[in-house]
Every structure is written in C-alpha cells, then in structure tokens.
C-alpha cells in the first residue's frame, strides 16, 4: 500500500468513519459520496458518520494460507461483520484463543490494531480489526 493512499484513508481505517445519506438515513461503510438508492437526490446531502464499532459476525472463515505480512498470525479468523448501523465489512477477528471460535452470531467490537508494515524500515499501517465483545458494565458499588 502506498503511503499517500493510506494517509487519505485514515478517517475510515482509524475511526470507522463512513457516511450517512441525509435523504434516506442509510449508512455506508466504507464512505460513499453518492447514495446508490437516492442517487442524484443525495448529492451534497452525504454526511460523515462515525460507526459505533459494535456488530455481529455474519460469516467467517479461518485463513491458513496468509496474505503477505500475516504469516505470524496463521491460522487467523476473517469474517464479514454486520455493524449495528446495518452496513457490512470484511475484517480480521483478533484476540481469540482458537480462530474457529469465530462463528456467525458472535458479537464483536472494533479495536485499533497494526494491520501491516512496509518491511522493517517502512511505514506501519494501523487500522481497525474486530475482537470478541465482552459485555462490560459491572462497576463496583
């Protein structure tokens, strides 16, 4: 990946920023600047929309033959996640003891992770992966 391209994509790679069509309220990730439903009605009416980062696994697989740069993580889980806002994305699911534990229906949340780097001296590409959602909230009284 080229450095300028990565830099341009920081908002959606780092912060899960997509877009929302203010005409029909549909949310898109990665960002679209024309709504495919409202088409020209949506021109100039697309707003940046930050996703909440929680979602559900729709489909998953375990990768044994990795893409370059992912050799140390084999076997790892890749899944299609439906975000709670309704849009879907493909992502790696990290932090699981066994990648086969990643199954449809599993609740996940976004996490900021290292994705790749240009060798030992190149730029490090950060972005979003997903990890199991641990329901939180029991605070001591």
């Amino acid at each position: 990946m080229g450095v300028p391209r990565f830099w341009r994509e920081q908002p959606h790679r780092y912060r899960l920023e997509g877009t929302r069509c203010t005409n029909c309220d549909r949310v898109y990730f990665p960002p679209r600047w024309v709504c495919p439903v409202c088409r020209r009605e949506s021109v100039g009416k697309m707003e940046r929309h930050k996703m909440d980062g929680t979602g559900t696994v729709v489909a998953s697989t375990v990768v044994h033959d990795p893409a370059p740069g992912f050799e140390d993580q084999v076997p790892y889980a890749v899944a299609i996640i439906e975000l709670d806002e309704g849009c879907r994305l493909t992502t790696q699911v990290s932090d699981v003891a066994d990648p086969h534990d990643v199954v449809p229906g599993m609740r996940v949340k976004s996490a900021f992770r290292r994705i790749q780097s240009d060798g030992a001296s190149g730029v490090i590409y950060y972005g979003t992966k997903f990890v199991p959602l641990v329901e939180q909230g029991s605070t001591p009284s």
Binding site: D72, Q73, D95, F112, R113, R114, I115, I124, Y126, K129
Partner: peptide, 13 residues
C-alpha cells in the same frame, strides 16, 4: 502483546 499490538494500539484503546 499480540502480533498486531504495539504502544500506539494500546494507547488508543
């Protein structure tokens, strides 16, 4: 730290 974690990712979380 996992293979995809470093000080930047820990700081962000």
């Amino acid at each position: 730290p996992g293979p995809d974690e470093d000080v930047a990712t820990i700081s962000v979380e």
